[in-house]
């Protein structure tokens, strides 16, 4: 009770500080003239309500066979340049005294046989991608508002505003972003926004032969991903950074960062 009160006070103070900061920022931003009415979005015109969804992604590493189909599908679906990855697969080979991690070409061509110099007791694959963090550092640091989060929870890049400074690439703790050498813009996974808005699954989910990758909608009550997040043991990558990732992993090993 007493400690609750205290916590509340601290939170209030934090909120106040945040608001004070915002206020200063606002004062600094001169007095911006604001558009009268927010225009209807193009996506909404085709009968898609972007405020009716809140997407989340669920990954079960224990099922992954490391075939790399997702990486290939992503590359083709999104025209990802060679040597860069919107999604990739990592292999962990772990023993009592040592561990080994690899991801040759992001797992694009599958994985070769491997011999490690220690007694491996477990090994597994972990698919990685943008976590579409709810409190994303990449979005925070974009100086021009070219990185943004849609109402459904996708973190996207506006390729007509991005100045290619690379600050977001540095700020992402997961290595999910890169500078596209063709567009000279920051590039990243969109959770296949162009597919999802048309009622399709993201390409990586579509092609996964093992059901490792699942895409779900937290606003749907019977959604299997929502159910799994609510009832099973899930974790996120680098939780200590408090980025609130929206890619959830089932039974993640501690070696995975």
């Amino acid at each position: 009770m007493d400690s609750d009160q205290k916590l509340k006070e601290i939170l209030d103070r934090r909120e106040f500080l945040g608001q004070a900061l915002l206020l200063t920022g606002g004062a600094v931003a001169f007095l911006l003239p604001h558009g009268a009415e927010a225009a209807e979005l193009d996506v909404e015109k085709e009968g898609y309500d972007w405020s009716a969804h809140r997407y989340a992604y669920l990954i079960d590493p224990s099922l992954c066979i490391g075939c790399g189909s997702c990486v290939r599908a992503c590359k083709r679906e999104n025209n990802v340049p060679d040597g860069f990855f919107r999604t990739w697969v990592e292999r962990y080979v772990v023993g009592g005294e040592s561990s080994h991690v690899d991801s040759p070409n992001g797992g694009l061509d599958g994985f070769p046989p491997l011999s490690v110099g220690f007694n491996a007791t477990k090994s597994f694959f972990v698919p990685k991608m943008c976590n579409h963090c709810a409190s994303s550092p990449c979005m925070q640091v974009c100086p021009v508002g070219a990185s943004f989060r849609t109402k459904e929870g996708m973190v996207l890049v506006d390729e007509k505003r991005c100045i290619g400074c690379g600050y977001c690439v540095q700020a992402c703790p997961y290595g999910s972003r890169f500078l596209n050498e063709e567009t000279k813009c920051a590039d990243k996974c969109t959770w296949c926004y162009h597919r999802v808005t048309k009622g399709m699954k993201p390409a990586c989910v579509e092609v996964c032969p093992r059901g490792v990758r699942q895409f779900g909608d937290l606003k749907r009550e019977d959604d299997p991903v929502r159910k799994a997040i609510e009832t099973r043991f899930v974790s996120v990558l680098q939780p200590h950074l408090l980025t609130e990732p929206q890619c959830y992993y089932l039974n993640l090993d501690r070696e995975v960062r």
Binding site: G25, G26, A29, Q140, C142, P143, V144, G145, I163
Partner: peptide
């Protein structure tokens, strides 16, 4: 753009 549409969280 940095001065036209500054995103002050950055």
């Amino acid at each position: 753009n940095v001065v036209v549409t500054p995103n002050f969280s950055s």
